[in-house]
Amino acid sequence: MREKLFETPSQTAGPYVHIGTAPQSIGRPALSGQPGPVIESDTGAAITLEGVVHDGAGAPVRDAMLEIWQADGDGRVGPHGLFARAVADFGSGLYRFQTVKPGPHAKGHAPHIALLIFARGINIHLHTRVYFPEDADRIAADPDFARLSPEARDTLIAKRTEGETYRFDIHLQGPNETVFFDI
């Protein structure tokens, strides 16, 4: 029998997550190389991804920290994968990433961005995915959507608002609750 260690348990990131992960958001210098909300890559179409995380009462989660991990525009992951981190605005709750539209990284899967959400009151980070409305055919054929209801699918598809800007609101709880994954 193989002996397996136990994963260290999660605890909430709490309301002061900015100190260690996004010091520039509280008026301190960012550490060198610390990831921010902007991805520079010439592999794909530049896009803006923005939205608000809502709690079960519909209020914006103003202390959220979000991270994205995605393929580059050519669908390459591993060392070519792209990562960024953003924090919600203290006033509006809006988060905003600048990135490129990912290419498909796995056969049969629609292009998407992996998105993690951390905040006070979130005991273990939530993992969701952002898909794109223009990929409707690929999404329809993607096996990862097979067991989701149409309403649940819709929570994972960003809305194109203007130009190259996509809106992706997250609902932590309630009738419009975003689908969260265990991967």
Binding site: A57, A59, L126, E177, F180, F181, D182
Partner: peptide, 11 residues
């Protein structure tokens, strides 16, 4: 108010 009601979707 910040806990999802629905179970996580396994992938």
């Amino acid at each position: 108010l910040r806990a999802p009601f629905r179970p996580l979707h396994s992938l």
